[in-house]
């Protein structure tokens, strides 16, 4: 082979020969090569195992719970008294607490989030975007515990100064703060959807003499509607699962009420209260933790599926 001629010019053997030599004792390398895909698959499987773990954990204990508490009375019961001799487990107070706080949050997050998205995507100059977007990112990065502190020590006292009947712990304040927390999420997901609308569509409408508002409202928003709605649904899912803000600022009253000036407990706050109280394993109280968590899990899962379905089913083809 022609390499041999070149080899003569050098004191060392040809590279190709060196490589051939090394190849012989490279069994370690080739073993590794065969093992790597398996190892990586094993690592990737951890996420699946996590999901299975969550499901198994929730299901086994929930089944135990429903052996002790009637399924029907749990989901229709308006009374929740988990402690004491005559414990009663009705989940409705927690459900109303969760849904009302979520509704308040979305009343804040949807309009402000959407308007922010429209401003950033359609109106803001490049310079304004460069300043405003990081601010939203900072808002999104603030830990929920900080928002909880803010709701409890600032927003509640502020609201109480002009809503006299407001209790020190109430669902209104954490609901509002939760809404603020979710604004960045709705804004950035909606903005992504609107930015994906091709400029040719805007130009077409603008060339007909439409104002920017008309273009936004009649062209861009309809074109991006699936992404926008998906962002709302994900926001709802986030609100349902949010824990610390409501735990701190809404107290632990288990009243079945629709009065937003009152203290209410959400599903998440119940889980924190009961598990933090170190409920003894095996008791109905302990099992109730999982039944509530299961309900919460199903709620958020359904929301996430809906969001995925919307954005997949109605994906715009430009």
């Amino acid at each position: 082979m022609q390499k041999s001629t070149r080899q003569d010019q050098h004191s060392r053997p040809a590279v190709s020969d060196l490589i051939a030599q090394k190849k012989k004792n490279r069994t370690v390398g080739s073993t590794l090569e065969k093992l790597v895909p398996g190892i990586l698959f094993g690592i990737a499987a951890v996420s699946i195992i996590t999901t299975v773990g969550i499901l198994l954990t929730l299901i086994t204990e929930t089944v135990l719970f429903f052996q002790e508490v009637n399924f029907f009375s749990f989901f229709t019961g308006t009374e929740l008294k988990p402690l004491g001799q005559n414990a009663v487990f009705g989940v409705l107070p927690l459900l109303t607490g969760t849904l009302i706080s979520t509704a308040i949050a979305m009343l804040v997050a949807i309009p402000i989030g959407l308007m922010t998205a429209i401003y950033l995507s359609e109106y803001a100059s490049e310079k304004a975007r460069r300043i405003l977007k990081p601010i939203l990112e900072i808002l999104a990065g603030i830990p929920t515990i900080v928002y909880g502190f803010f709701a409890f020590t600032f927003v509640t006292p502020l609201l109480r100064s002009f809503i006299p009947g407001l209790e020190p712990t109430n669902i209104l304040s954490p609901g509002l703060v939760m809404g603020i927390m979710i604004i960045p999420m709705v804004a950035s997901l909606s903005e992504d959807a609107m930015s994906a609308v091709p400029n040719s569509m805007r130009e077409g409408a603008l060339a007909l003499g439409s104002t920017k508002l008309e273009v936004t409202w009649k062209v861009v928003v309809p074109a991006a509607i699936s992404g926008i709605i998906a962002s709302f649904v994900l926001g709802i899912s986030r609100a349902i699962g949010e824990t610390m803000i409501v735990t701190i600022a809404s107290g632990s009253s288990k009243n079945f009420t629709f009065d937003i000036t009152q203290s209410m407990q959400t599903m998440t706050a119940y889980i924190v209260e009961v598990s933090g109280g170190e409920a003894a394993a095996g008791t109905t109280l302990y099992h109730s933790l999982y039944a509530v968590a299961m309900t919460l899990f199903v709620f958020t899962l359904v929301m996430n599926f809906i969001a995925q379905y919307i954005s997949r089913r109605f994906r715009e083809e430009y």
């Binding site: 990737a44 996420s47 699946i48 773990g53 954990t57 996430n304 995925q308």
Partner: peptide, 24 residues
């Protein structure tokens, strides 16, 4: 499946992870 599972895990409330940690 793995990909979908990961995006679903991202949507699971943190408090549920807490229960997983507590139990497991």
């Amino acid at each position: 499946i793995i990909q979908t599972n990961i995006s679903n895990l991202a949507g699971v409330p943190s408090v549920v992870f807490g229960l997983l940690g507590l139990t497991v």
